[in-house]
Design a protein around this nucleic acid. Structure first.
Lengths: 200, 200
DNA sequence: ATGTCGATTGACTAATCAGTCTGTTATGAG
DNA sequence: CTCATAACAGACTGATTAGTCAATCGACAT
């Protein structure tokens, strides 16, 4: 009974994700999306009132999925360092498994097609990270800086590492890179005062 | 003899920068660009063979301008820490003075409209930063990690701070934030083992 | 059978856009 | 002044696009 897709709505979202990544929002006609999804033009507009609604839905879906993935891994009772490490590793792993979704997010993070309201709603899925940062500051394991600053730096650094892994070295060295990167994020790029690290 | 613009080419680039920031590449018709620039459609295509040429030129112009601004401030004989601090501060200052150019760069950094070749050419303006990182690793003041990783984290963190400053607090606290942020980038987000930093 | 109602279709349209074309003006050399 | 060349203008066009709409399908109830 099941065709390749019971759910045409999902087929449309999948096709849109692919095409938006490769061609951008305005570079992808709705006709192309519906053709790749294997449905008629009308069906697309049956599920999404406008093209903008489609992109907005896709954006929030993906942010939500990522938010859930990160939430799941952050054990609430672990020490802060371990929680943050889990979130970082979870983010990188999610990106490796969903490179298209990551590229979509990167591409539309700063795009004018995403309204500020949608943007804010997408960001709310990561509010729990801010709480962990706050907790870390209270406990004295994180520097007493504005949590927004720590959050922004942590997020940007994580994305940068993921971008690096996805673009470049596709080998087993990725795991080593993740460890190195987390140490950089956690300890900072300055070597310990004792001189060049003798470890390893 | 001089009109408001002796150079219509520059007027077109300025208008395109404005409009692309607010509406995106495909959301901005060439007719709109030429109208805002105060020239005719034909004039736009006289200076830029295609719309893509226009955006590519704009992208490389801006990256070049930023590259020069950063190069100028990095005294070649200062210690590495001071050089990196200058580059960071210079980047933030440039972004505060050219918010539209910064938003344009952010928006098109991950856009499929920028060909990989153009992207690479734009990035070449920042190769000198990689060299400084390498020097720092050799001297033992930076952790012995792949320079590409350090460079990526430094760049992403700097952009994140700039984004934070441009979006939010528009007061005098920006200077304090820059200092805090540089310490975070340099030292890392972990507090020193001796407990919460007592400095300041 | 009959009726209902959402899902689905794809031809169609009004609007828009990148780029062209033809001509006009400005500049400047000889 | 004359001629050549480049800058500039803006109406025009062929192609494309978002979104519509009237018709059909299929499942399920009465």
């Amino acid at each position: 009974m099941d065709g390749p897709y019971t759910d045409k709505r999902q087929a449309i979202l999948d096709a849109a994700l692919d095409l938006f990544c490769e061609r951008g929002f305005h570079g992808t006609p709705t006709s192309m999306i519906s053709r790749q999804a294997g449905v008629a033009t009308g069906t697309l507009f049956h599920y999404f009132r406008t093209k903008e609604t489609l992109i907005e839905t896709l954006y929030l879906d993906i942010k939500g999925e990522l938010g859930n993935a990160l939430c799941a891994h952050a054990g609430t009772q672990d020490p802060v360092r371990e929680q943050i490490r889990c979130i970082f590793a979870g983010y990188v792993r999610w990106g490796e498994e969903n490179p298209r979704k990551f590229r979509f997010m990167e591409q539309f993070y700063n795009a004018p097609q995403i309204s500020p309201h949608t943007h804010e709603e997408g960001m709310s899925r990561f509010a729990f990270i801010r709480d962990i940062v706050r907790q870390g500051i209270d406990e004295g394991v994180l520097k007493p800086c504005p949590p927004g600053l720590q959050f922004a730096l942590f997020g940007a650094s994580s994305s940068a590492v993921l971008r690096l892994i996805l673009s470049g070295s596709g080998g087993e060295e990725a795991d080593a890179l993740i460890d190195q990167a987390f140490d950089l994020i956690w300890d900072g790029i300055a070597a310990p005062a004792a001189g060049p690290t003798p470890s390893r």
